[in-house]
Amino acid sequence: MSYCVHCGVELDDSAARCVLCNTPVCNPNKPPQDLPTPYSEKVLLPPQVRRRFTAFLLSMILLLPNIVCLLTNLFLPGDIFWAKYVNITSLFVWILFLFPFLLKKIPAFVLVLIDSLSVLGYVFFFYMDFEQSGWFLRVAVPTVAVLALSAGFTIEWCQRKKPDWPYIVFAVFLEVSVFSVFAGVSLYYQLSSVYALLIGSIAAVSALMTAFFFLAVKHNRHLRAWLSRRFFF
C-alpha cells in the first residue's frame, strides 16, 4: 500500500499519483503492476448530432412557408407583390445560418465571402426597391467590405497562430473597434451628422477598453485564474 506524503491518505494500489494533490507515488518496495483501476477508462458520450441532416430538415421547413406565401400572393394578388420580401429574407437567413452546415468542409474565408455577398445582396434588394440616393455604393459596400476584411483577417490569424481564448477575445474587440471608427466616419460623410461620428467613437473606445482588459487577462495569470473560476469558463 502507498500513502501520499503530502495529504497523508492511503492510495489505491493502481494509483500512479495522489488524486487530491497530484503528488506522484514513489514506493520502492512495490514494483509497478497493471492492477485494475476502480473505474473503467471508457467515457460514455451522447451520439453526435447529424448536422447535415438537421440543416436539410430545417431548410425544408423553411421552404414550406415560402411556397405558401408565394402561392397565396399569386392566386390572391394584392396591390404589391409582398411575397418577395418573405422569400428574400428566408433566402438570406438560409445562406447565413443553414447553408454552411450543408457543405462538408469549407474554408473560413470562403464563408466570410459568401456571407458578405449575401449581406450586400440583401441590402441591394431593398436599395433598389425603395430609395436610390447613392448610399449603397458610398456606405453599404465599403462598410461591409471593411467588416468582411477584418473578420477574414482575424479568422486567418486565429487559424494560423491558434492563440489562447483571451487573445481571441482581444482580437475580436479590436476588430469591433476598428469597424466602429470606419462606420462612424462613413456615416458622417453620408449623413453629415455629428451624432453618427459620436456614436461610432463611443463604441470604438468601449470596444478598445474591453480589448485591452482581455490583453491584461492574457498576461496576468492571477486575473485569468480569477476570471476562470468566477465565471466558470
Partner: peptide
C-alpha cells in the same frame, strides 16, 4: 476534497482514496 480528507487524517482517521 483534499481539505476534507486531510482534516479527517489529522484527526486520526485513516482514509483510503480511490478515484476515476
Amino acid at each position: 476534497e483534499q481539505r476534507f480528507f486531510t482534516t479527517l487524517v489529522k484527526m486520526g482517521i485513516p482514509v483510503k482514496i480511490e478515484s476515476n
